[in-house]
């Protein structure tokens, strides 16, 4: 597991039904591309977040593949329409098998 990996998300606390809300996500991660070499000239093994998903009450909202060119601390912002109150679940998949999760509830009026 990479050091200091911490997911952060910002979801509005409430929204109107059918309104498109802006969701911002960020995970601190080195995103080592695998292209770099250390001081001795040995390749530094690739270690990136390779997949990011957002689910709402079990339904997939966003399923993204992240590639080595994505920079350190990947930031993903997107819009989603929320039909009813519920919980967003965010998941980041690390090359080393680690999975980072966080959830955020929203109230729809």
């Amino acid at each position: 597991m990479a050091d200091n990996v911490k997911p952060r998300v910002r979801v509005p606390k409430s929204a109107k039904a059918g309104e498109a809300i802006v969701i911002k996500t960020l995970i601190s991660h080195p995103m080592e591309s695998g292209q770099r070499k250390d001081k001795q000239g040995n390749p530094i093994p690739r270690q990136i977040i390779n997949r990011f998903t957002c689910e709402f009450e079990g339904e997939m909202v966003l399923d993204a593949t992240l590639e080595p060119a994505v920079s350190t601390n990947p930031y993903v912002e997107f819009e989603a329409k929320v039909p009813a109150s519920g919980t967003f679940k965010f998941t980041w998949y690390d090359d080393d098998g680690s999975v980072y999760e966080t959830t955020e509830a929203i109230t729809v009026s």
């Binding site: 952060r8 910002r10 911002k24 960020l26 601190s28 601390n73 930031y75």
Partner: peptide, 8 residues
């Protein structure tokens, strides 16, 4: 602050 990378 969410978008300010320094906050990490």
């Amino acid at each position: 602050d969410f978008e300010n990378p320094a906050m990490l």
